[in-house]
Design a protein around this nucleic acid. Structure first.
Length: 624
DNA sequence: GTAGGGTTAG
């Protein structure tokens, strides 16, 4: 019954994407290190740092069944046991120490595990290659891969020959830190110098790294190579690439690989493979197909897990169908699957995005009632909700509450709070927020830069935004099309159309392909200043590179009507009709005024009747 | 005597 219900709610609808989500980089961008003296100069003076505070997630702990120390179910037990063991004489066998370290690592208590390793060395416990592989793994997972390589020296001094497990951990560490090029060099060295025989894990890890930088083609080449070399790819190897293809919206290629895996290689997909495909389909708005995959998964006897449901909750929320998302949670409970914090956070975020804060708080309460402890992500969503509804005082209270609850603000918290302050025109306070973030040593991310630029532009401080942009120079941040979109929009709204035009021309120099959004922003700017012919020319130019969307037509139509350029109105309306595009309410009212004034032929009414309207906020240039 | 890799959140 529950399954049927789930199928019913999997109705297809196109997904909406947030303004900042259309980049295709999956790693962090680096910041330039030149010293600048603008109010937000810290952005430019921050360089990529390897410092990272580990997040220890005890909830995910799976007790190791083979461990002789089954009573070690938590960190305190493990630490106590270690104390007892280290006081016993003679010292217990190294295997027992190893097992203890292993269970701590399984619990993701990497720093504690590393600490015990150091104590073992101080005690003179004769560490083995197994101990070393755990220590190295811990360093890598703590984003301290350089320290892990230093431990390799420690191995050599003790005549411990590193094995494939150790190399795999190191390779994974480099990839975790986005050091993909170094990972590739390391991987090639392993093979060339015959340091070890790469295992399926070695290949899969390298493939994961290649996928992380969107290098699916090379990842597939490596898949072929491992097969040729007699190393059989596993469900993990295939799923890694399938997931990457799904994330890059190359769903057809993903399915091609999926079929190859199942029918040619005879490898059975598992719940993760299906989750990736379902998520991929949902993110393309193809929910009916996602629903079919869900059915197929159930047919082959694979039960959906928390993640599967979480993906569905996310898909419904992104489509604005938050009530349906809430139903998914009920279905989970019916099936005896306990929703985790991610699932709840996703739902809370869904309500927050709609500004339904009362509902969001209700879900928050039921989550707490179920014994889940809200984390910084939960609070960030609530903060975003208050900011979006311009309830800045409530947002500020919540911002302070986060630290009172013993949680730390992260970059998302600061970005959200600052964006909220910019929205209500409190630029100086927004700056204070970023200064605080900088003071805490937090790395600004891609969004930080965009939020500052957009905040300055919207508050008529375009010069400030432009000087920051210029001072960032050739930083990777300035090669992001989002940055150009914000500045072109900001410059044209501040009456500096020439600057907007220059920025638009710069796109080619920067080898950035203009997308539909940036065309819309530029066309909107040209129309605003009455450059109708230029706007039309750009509209025709974009036809070649990619089709204009509903927003383009609304923007151009409004430009034609406001500037009394009536010749092309009919053609544009016919085009919109043909493409199934809607008029937004402000375009519609302008058109009706023009018809009433006799400037546009009354026959246009026929076209209007055929055309539904959409709210202005979903179709006007304010989108940008 | 003991291991390793892939999915979900702004």
């Amino acid at each position: 019954m529950a399954t049927k219900k789930m199928m019913i709610i999997c109705l297809s609808k196109s997904a909406h994407y947030s303004f900042f989500k259309f980049n295709n980089m999956r790693g962090n961008l680096f910041f330039t290190n030149s010293f600048l003296k603008t109010p937000f100069s810290f952005l430019a003076s921050t360089i990529h740092s390897n410092s990272f505070s580990s997040s220890s997630n005890v909830d995910n702990f799976e007790q190791h069944p083979q461990s002789i120390y089954q009573k070690v179910a938590n960190l305190d037990d493990a630490l106590n046991l270690f104390d007892q063991m280290s006081q016993r004489r003679p010292l217990p066998s190294i295997v027992k120490f190893n097992q203890l370290l292993h269970s701590l690592t399984k619990m993701k208590h990497f720093s504690h595990s590393l600490h015990l390793f150091k104590q073992m060395c101080a005690l003179g416990v004769p560490v083995t290659h197994y101990t070393m592989s755990i220590a190295i793994k811990c360093c890598c997972q703590l984003y301290r891969t350089n320290d892990a390589f230093a431990l390799l020296g420690f191995c050599f001094r003790r005549s411990i020959v590193p094995d494939v497990f150790i190399f795999n951990a190191l390779l994974d560490g480099l990839i975790l830190e986005d050091r993909i090029l170094e990972a590739e060099i390391f991987f090639k060295k392993l093979i060339k110098l015959k340091l070890c025989e790469p295992s399926v894990v070695t290949y899969s890890t390298m493939i994961k790294g290649l996928c992380k930088v969107c290098n699916n083609v090379i990842a597939i080449q490596l898949l072929r190579l491992m097969d040729e070399k007699g190393c059989k790819p596993s469900v993990v190897t295939y799923s890694t690439i399938i997931d990457s293809l799904c994330k890059d919206k190359m769903i057809d290629d993903a399915f091609k690989l999926f079929k190859e895996m199942v029918f040619q290689k005879g490898i059975s997909p598992d719940v993760i493979t299906y989750n990736s495909l379902i998520d991929g389909l949902c993110s393309l708005g193809r929910r009916d197909e996602a629903s079919k995959m869900l059915q197929e998964m159930l047919d082959v006897g694979i039960s959906p897990n928390v993640q599967t449901f979480s993906i569905l909750v996310d898909a419904f929320c992104k489509d604005g169908e938050v009530e349906e998302a809430e139903n998914v949670i009920d279905i989970m409970l019916e099936r005896g699957i306990v929703p985790d914090i991610v699932t709840y956070n996703t739902l809370i975020d869904g309500y927050c995005l709609r500004g339904e804060m009362t509902k969001a708080k209700t879900i928050f309460d039921s989550m707490v009632f179920r014994g889940l402890v809200p984390d910084v992500v939960t609070y960030n969503s609530l903060l975003n909700g208050y900011c979006k509804s311009l309830k800045i005082d409530e947002a500020m209270d919540l911002f302070n509450e986060i630290t009172r609850k013993g949680l730390k603000h992260d970059v998302v918290t600061y970005n959200t709070m600052a964006q909220g302050l910019f929205q209500v025109g409190r630029c100086a306070d927004a700056r204070k927020i970023f200064d605080e973030m900088h003071g805490k040593g937090l790395m600004p991310d891609q969004l930080t830069y965009g939020i500052i630029l957009e905040g300055l532009c919207n508050n008529h401080q375009i010069e400030e935004a432009l000087s920051l942009f210029h001072l960032m120079g050739d930083s990777k941040l300035n090669t992001d099309i989002v940055v150009y979109t914000i500045l072109i929009d900001g410059a044209s709204k501040c009456g500096k159309l020439n600057i907007a035009r220059l920025l638009f021309q710069d796109l080619t120099k920067m080898s950035l392909n203009p997308d539909v959004r940036i065309y819309n922003v530029m066309i909107s700017g040209l129309c605003r200043e009455g450059f109708i012919m230029d706007a039309k020319q750009l509209f025709l130019k974009m036809e070649k590179s990619g089709p204009p969307d509903q927003v383009t037509y609304n923007v151009l139509l409004q430009g034609y009507l406001r500037n009394k350029h009536f010749d092309d109105v009919e053609m544009l309306l016919h085009d919109m009709d043909g493409r199934g595009y809607f008029l937004d309410v402000s375009t519609m009212s302008l058109l009706i005024d023009s018809i009433a004034a006799g400037s546009v032929d009354t026959t246009m009414f026929k076209l209007i009747r055929k055309t539904k309207t959409v709210p202005a906020k979903c179709g006007s240039s304010d989108w940008y």
